[in-house]
Amino acid sequence: MTAGAPDAPQAPPTAGPGGASAAGLPTGERLLSAGGFTVRVHERTGLVTAILAVLTVLLVVVSLVIGEFRISVPDVAATLVGDAPDRTTRFFIHERRLPRALVAVAVGAALAASGALFCALTRNPLASPDIIGITQGASAGGATVILVLGGGIAQVAAGALVGAALTAGFILLLTWWRGLGGARLVLLGVALGALAMAYVAHLLSRGFVASAVTAQVWLTGSLQGRGWSELWPLAWVLLAAAVVISTQARSMRAFALGDDVAVALGVPVRRARLLLLGAATALAGAAVATAGPVSFVALVAPHVSRLLTRGDRVLPAALLGGLLLLASDLVAQHAFAQPLPVGVVTVVLGGAFFLGLLWREGRHG
């Protein structure tokens, strides 16, 4: 989706020779004019995005209804518009269920958007933050704050962001002169991730029992106790990243054609890559800072989004990531005798995803 300066009102494009529209657009895309701006819309992506948005809203409503204290849909609607039937209902919706559901959506969206950006930047479908070491670096930063510095939640968040930034900077430093693509990046990321987790294991073995337990729960990935105070900082990071991504949309499309083509099209490759890499790192770090290193959402959501939209778009991937993490959290809360950390469910989801990929490759091999 791209925006440009207003011209005359655009007529709907008609198909021309070679499958392109009369306006020179690929088949399945059209120009829409509204409010003085012209927007190019990919029809399939728009449809998938709309469906994912509706499903996310419906799942949020489900998360407000179910639980040990059942709340009817009319009572949920009345509470959301400020007419709660009683204080208990208002407490459960506004202080427990709604903020947790929104945090789940925001964390999943941040992870998935980060994964989609890394895949687009490197042209490597495995370059998600939990494969190339960004998530592990953030985990090491947060664990250092808990087990070495004895910091609280705010300090843990800062440590996770610093850890993610240092890991991304190290990867960038080692790969800049040969580019960010290829198996070399994945192998480097796996090595850095292994080193980071070895460091975390060392800290856990030497820390006090209480601190080690706290760190272990955080390292599993959990939304327990997350509320409005955790949502707003992540929401600001998502907003800032959305601004960067929207301003660099043309550069991202050019990257898909290769750096040489991007340079020929006038794209400032280094500047655009640094901006997008910074946005992807900030998204991954902020998500880990909020809920711990929730695994596989950043890998699974962009892949499934690519299958649904037949393209590399960040918005549907982000919506799908939020939907997947919210669904996983509902399963973790209500499908077992005792609630589980959401990271346990996403690990199972990631394992099933990899088995599905192997089965699919075996059929086509």
Rank of each mutant, 00 (worst) to 15 (best):
A272M: 00
A291S: 09
A262C: 02
G221T: 08
G207A: 15
V263S: 09
W218T: 04
G227S: 05
A249P: 05
L204Q: 12
W236D: 04
A210W: 10
T247Y: 13
F208P: 14
G285A: 01
H202P: 05
G285D: 00
L231T: 02
W232R: 07
A264H: 14
V288R: 08
D260W: 08
V209G: 01
E230D: 08
W218F: 11
L234Y: 14
G207E: 06
F208R: 15
L265R: 12
T247W: 14
P268A: 07
G207C: 05
R206F: 10
V288T: 07
L239Y: 00
W228N: 01
A254E: 07
A240H: 14
A215C: 06
G225M: 05
L223N: 02
L265E: 03
A256T: 14
A249T: 12
L274T: 15
L219I: 01
R271K: 15
A241C: 06
A254P: 02
Q224H: 10
R270S: 15
V217G: 02
W236F: 14
I245S: 07
S246L: 13
I245Y: 07
L276F: 04
A282D: 05
G266P: 07
V243H: 12
T214E: 10
S229V: 13
A256P: 06
V237S: 02
P293I: 06
L203N: 08
A287L: 02
T214C: 00
A291P: 01
L234I: 05
A272L: 00
A256F: 06
Q224M: 08
L223H: 03
L219F: 11
T220G: 05
A254D: 04
T247P: 04
A201G: 04
L275S: 07
G225I: 06
G292W: 15
H202A: 11
A291F: 03
A280R: 13
A291C: 05
